[in-house]
């Protein structure tokens, strides 16, 4: 049975699109049939991060409004053939999304794929509520910063009240994905601690993604980090998060700072 996941956060710039691409690719790499759907109509980004920007012909809005058939708009990934992208429209805005159209597209996607991963736009308005409406589960992307945590809390409240699942009186599974975690800043006490974020949001932890050059590089190259450099720390964290989404129980490792030569030297002296 297909699972619809919304990747959401409230706040912008926390890593929703990067995480959608990385989780989608990681699930597809494990043999699952995956589609990533860009709901950020007007500010289309997922196609760039997936490296498919030059192959977009039809988009979500065309399908929602009945101007194109779903298979015409789906873009199959060149590297993994179980991974597809449904891009957003860059020339339209969120008002072009209709509730009925989105319902129809999601139910068509459910017949074709194992996982439907919806990249939500930032904010709490129409685009974000439509992206979350049909979700079976949510990945709440949060940075260890107070503003991001409060916005995530707001989104969790909406997941529990504004979604189809909530309207049926069911409970939606919500997973916390802590991104842009900087071990050096964490040790200096400049970021919220993981346990504080977990205590405030009180939803289970899906993974901790360390802040990394690799993530930025992957986005700019149009290659999800789990495909481009699968042995890097963030890729490993995303791959483990994807396995947890599939129901595996794995201990979440908190990324430690990789210390340089001087750090190791001083570290040893401190122990001795």
């Amino acid at each position: 049975m297909a699972t619809v996941i919304v990747v959401t956060s409230g706040k912008g710039g926390v890593g929703k699109t990067t995480s959608t691409a990385a989780l989608g690719a990681a699930l597809a790499q494990s043999g699952q049939n995956v589609v990533v759907v860009d709901f950020d109509v007007g500010l289309r980004n997922l196609d760039l991060v997936m490296g498919a920007e030059r192959r977009v012909v039809f988009d979500l809005i065309n399908v929602v409004q009945g101007d194109a058939k779903l298979p015409q708009a789906l873009i199959r990934d060149k590297r993994i053939d179980t991974l597809s992208l449904l891009p957003a429209s860059q020339t339209r805005d969120k008002d072009a999304l209709t509730a009925e159209g989105v319902t129809r597209v999601i139910s068509e996607l459910r017949e074709k794929f194992d996982w439907i991963i919806c990249d939500s736009p930032a904010g709490i308005e129409r685009g974000a509520t439509l992206a979350m409406h049909h979700a079976d589960a949510a990945v709440v992307v949060t940075n260890p910063e107070v503003s991001s945590v409060r916005d995530s809390d707001r989104i969790i409240g909406m997941l529990d009240s504004k979604t189809a699942k909530a309207e049926r009186g069911e409970r939606m599974d919500k997973h916390l994905l802590l991104t842009r975690y900087d071990p050096a800043r964490a040790t200096r006490g400049e970021m919220l601690k993981t346990e504080d974020v977990l205590e405030i949001l009180s939803i289970p932890l899906l993974g901790i993604i360390p802040e990394s050059e690799e993530v930025l590089r992957a986005s700019n190259l149009g290659t999800p980090v789990t495909l481009g450099s699968p042995n890097s720390a963030p890729a490993k964290a995303y791959i483990e998060a994807a396995r947890r989404l599939r129901g595996e129980t794995l201990v979440v490792s908190i990324p430690a700072e990789r210390r340089g030569f001087m750090g190791r030297l001083f570290g040893r002296r401190a122990v001795a």
Binding site: R150, D153, G157, S202
Partner: peptide
């Protein structure tokens, strides 16, 4: 009770099992 939510009950007390 999540950020942005408002719980109002004019008739009496409110007890919240959570934050």
């Amino acid at each position: 009770v999540r950020s942005g939510q408002s719980i109002a009950f004019e008739r009496g007390d409110i007890t919240i099992m959570g934050s």
